[in-house]
């Protein structure tokens, strides 16, 4: 890619803000095929012990990957991702992703990413992204 950023270095940061708008779980269901009713049907979600519909965890993972690929300027430079889903995302939640490059070894780099909702509560735990410069 011609618009790649300059060489990543330890301490670089990148951010992305994403709102779980009312229809995001529906849009993500359509695109991903994850039609589990806990993401679509408030009554079903409450019967499953949730306060309401929650966003697909894999959409949250997608947001983290998107933040990283924007930083790298190239989806092909993303080589790995690892996340634990620590808290569900509800409709109207606004998630702020903050990535920090923690290691650069030759062309390979590692970044940690924090993802918190509008109350400052983490929605991912120990999220790590691997890439190449």
């Amino acid at each position: 890619m011609t618009d790649s950023p300059k060489a990543p270095k330890v301490g670089d940061t990148f951010t992305l803000v994403r709102e779980c708008d009312r229809y995001r779980p529906v849009y993500y269901a359509a695109a991903s095929g994850d039609f589990n009713p806990i993401h679509l049907d408030p009554e079903f979600a409450r019967a499953a012990g949730l306060p309401g519909v929650i966003l697909q965890g894999l959409c949250t993972l997608g947001w983290a990957v998107d933040a990283f690929q924007r930083y790298l300027g190239d989806p092909g430079k993303v080589r790995g991702v690892r996340v634990r889903f620590s808290r569900p995302i509800a409709v109207d939640d606004v998630i702020t992703f903050t990535g920090t490059v923690t290691q650069v070894d030759g062309e390979r780099l590692t970044a940690q990413i924090d993802a918190v909702n509008q109350r400052g509560e983490p929605v991912l735990k120990g999220a790590v992204l691997e890439g190449v410069a």
Binding site: M1, S32, G33, D34, L58, L61, G62, V65, D66, Q69, R70, G73, D74, P75, G76, V78, V81
Partner: peptide
């Protein structure tokens, strides 16, 4: 801000990949 190589055929044709590529996390599908 969506990277062009993920959606724009003309831009993707000019990229190193020569075609639209998947978001890495398309693996979930």
């Amino acid at each position: 801000g969506l990277l062009p190589v993920l959606h724009d055929k003309a831009a993707a044709a000019q990229s190193a990949y020569g075609a639209i590529v998947a978001m890495p996390n398309f693996a979930v599908v």
